[in-house]
């Protein structure tokens, strides 16, 4: 019954690796989604040139920045909702 006294529960090797894997997965998933959205929004599909022109480059830069901002806003909002519903004793069960 060492878990009663051993402080924080120790993760098995497999759990630690899986946790690290999930972390990398989250970031790479986010990158893939961002790439899809920003390409759709910034790159016209007629491909008149192989290079990125000025307009496309600036659009991509801003798109990444806004994607992160939206990410933050949603996260803040969700955290706010979770706190609010915890106080009123209902909701997500978080």
């Amino acid at each position: 019954m060492s878990f009663l006294f051993g402080g924080p529960p120790k993760m098995t090797s497999e759990q630690k690796i899986a946790a690290a894997e999930t972390e990398v997965e989250m970031v790479s998933d986010m990158f893939n989604r961002l790439t899809e959205s920003c390409t759709k929004k910034c790159i016209p599909t007629d491909y008149r040139e192989g290079d990125l022109n000025k307009g496309e480059s600036v659009c991509l830069d801003r798109c990444v920045s806004k994607f992160f901002e939206v990410n933050m806003k949603v996260s803040e909002k969700m955290q706010g909702e979770a706190t609010a519903s915890k106080q009123s004793g209902m909701g997500f069960g978080m």
């Binding site: 970031v27 990158f31 790439t35 920003c38 390409t39 491909y47 990125l52």
Partner: peptide
């Protein structure tokens, strides 16, 4: 050819910006 070229360049650029933003966050 231009489609592939543009994709590689834009995904490179997105990756750079992504790393910067991710590090900042």
């Amino acid at each position: 050819m231009r489609c592939v070229d543009k994709y590689l360049k834009s995904s490179g650029r997105l990756n750079e910006r992504f790393q910067e933003q991710n590090a900042a966050m």
